[in-house]
Nucleic acid binder design. Sequence first.
RNA 1: GCGGCUGUAGCUCAGCUGGUAGUAGCGCCAGAUUGUGGUUCUGGAUGUCGAGGGUUCGAAUCCCUCCAGCCGCCCCA
Length: 411
Amino acid sequence: MIRAIKGTRDLLPPDTAVWNRVEAVAREVFRTYSYHEIRTPILEETQLFARGVGKETDIVSKEMYTFDDRDGTSVTLRPEATASVIRAYIEHRLDQKPGVQKLYYIGPMFRRERPQKGRYRQFFQIGAEAIGSDSPFIDAEVIEMVVEILTRAGLEGFTLLINSVGDANCRPAYVEKLRSALRSVASRLCEDCQRRVETNPLRVLDCKVPEDQIVIDQLPSILDNLCGVCLPHFETVQAHLRERGIPFEIKSRLVRGLDYYMRTTFEVVHGNLGAQNSVLGGGRYDGLAESLGSSVPAPGIGFSIGEDRLVMTVGQSTGDVPDIFLAPLGETALLHAGGLARDLRRRGVSVEVAANAKLKRAMELANKLGARYALILGDDEIAAGQYSLKNMQSGDQRRVTRDELFSTIGS
RNA sequence: GCGGCUGUAGCUCAGCUGGUAGUAGCGCCAGAUUGUGGUUCUGGAUGUCGAGGGUUCGAAUCCCUCCAGCCGCCCCA
């Protein structure tokens, strides 16, 4: 048997109904914040991610699906979408368009990790980017929007974490400060952290080993080391969030794994997701466009929601059920039912027709499918210009004319 | 990439220390006389017991390898 490859999966009904609902909510929220959809290719030149996401990140260094195209260029299945959106922004000179470019996307991403609960090799993200403004107002608006999407999608009990990771001005100095502080306490840390002291000191802050926490809590905080631009920026973002009544927690140890983040970063976590407790991550990336070759500055901020994780958390669906199930008796009635089904469908009614004529079987199916009504069409009904309409829940059955049928079901 | 656990019908599983697969539950299909579901009863279909190899007279049961899934590490969404 041929099966879906490791880390990928088929989404089947009724689950797809939940996916569709979540996406519909997201699109509706995006619309009200005047974001517009962008669709970029799933396949990109490898160097886009090497330069955009960062060569040293785990994503680029060991998780990408990369292969040589037939002409020899190295191509990659996108592991995230921000780099592509910025590429498109530069390529199509979207900086020439009026106002802040607000773009959103929904689609599959690919990372070759070990699959786990909430972690797949093909996974879906719902994300957005606001490009062309470095105002903290935009940061707050983006965060508000994401909270709105999660809430309206039905997510409960989540926590919004925010932080500032500084910029090219203050972060390097902080990293050095952190590194030297770490060297003096390294012996009290876990093996992984001892390695990180040299490779990536910021990652120590994200360590989950309980014994390390006491040591880590004593380390210098990025928030005490922000420069004269980053600090007021972060304070303004917080002021806006408070003004809008959005609850958040400052987590100075919140570190992101993509190189392009600067200043504001944020994350939403939820308890039901196991080790993969993050539903969403995002942040500001003012230098990204330039590092991808933009001749003009294009400060931006964005996020992406892990759709698989969101769907997992907002729960099950019973799926869509037919409004009415037609049970024609005999070939003549079936012909008639075909036309009637078409007319109902044109009125927006969802209809299923039993093609095999046995009434008992038809009623059984109507019941199993959860149809609200069943309509029996025998020769005598058709001759009389009336159908037998049965309410499947109450069991009531009555004769109705075609017009009565439409007015009963159509609403 | 590294650990741990798991892998028997569509689904959830039983099958003790090896003896040649379950009357299990749910689901599916078909019946219980003529045009009516949800309850009940009867019957039926479906498995190379994850794959390959080994031990053995004999393996779903023991051993090895692989594959897949789950959980954790790592990382992230």
